[in-house]
């Protein structure tokens, strides 16, 4: 479960810290107390920045770092597709062996495939992704409202 990629991201997280954004959310995992505050900045339809402050286990920390790598700079439609693919992998209970196509989409995030076998830890891996989805929806609806 603890792939080197995960440990690297845990020890040297990317994009950590809170910076400007149009929407901010705070998500918690009540079973283990992991927490994240996450902000999204949209530049038009492009994810300009995902910044975050979080506390929790290596899986939740590394997952937020990978998310930042993968989604910043992507068009929102593409980012949503990546999020959905990651969700599918994490909900697979260890049944999906990531193929080349999936690896193309998820890059480092395929390292989390092993985590999907541990029901107690899937929520850790998804915490930042659910927070991102929520914040992005808020940023987009805020922009549409203006």
């Amino acid at each position: 479960m603890y792939q080197d990629v995960i440990l690297d991201h845990y020890k040297h997280p990317h994009g950590r810290g809170l910076r400007d954004g149009q929407a901010e959310v705070h998500h918690v995992n009540p079973t283990c107390g992991d927490e994240i505050t996450l902000r999204v900045r949209m530049d038009g339809t492009v994810i300009g920045d995902v910044s975050y402050k979080s506390q929790g286990c290596s899986i939740s920390q590394a997952s937020a770092s990978v998310l930042n790598d993968l989604l910043v700079g992507k068009d929102v439609g593409e980012a949503q597709k990546i999020q959905e693919t990651f969700l599918e992998l994490m909900q697979s209970k260890g049944q999906i062996e990531p193929d080349d196509a999936m690896e193309e989409v998820l890059e480092d995030a395929v390292a989390f495939a092993g985590v999907s076998k541990y029901p107690a830890r899937v929520k850790c891996a998804l915490l930042s992704w659910m927070a991102w989805k929520d914040a992005t929806a808020q940023a987009l609806s805020g922009a549409a409202g203006k």
Partner: peptide, 21 residues
């Protein structure tokens, strides 16, 4: 080191502890 990580690595060695609040 987060207790979840402690518990998981111990579990890999067959050691059952509880983590959390």
């Amino acid at each position: 080191i987060h207790p979840h990580d402690v518990g998981q690595v111990l579990d890999e060695q067959g050691i059952a502890v509880r983590v959390g609040h």
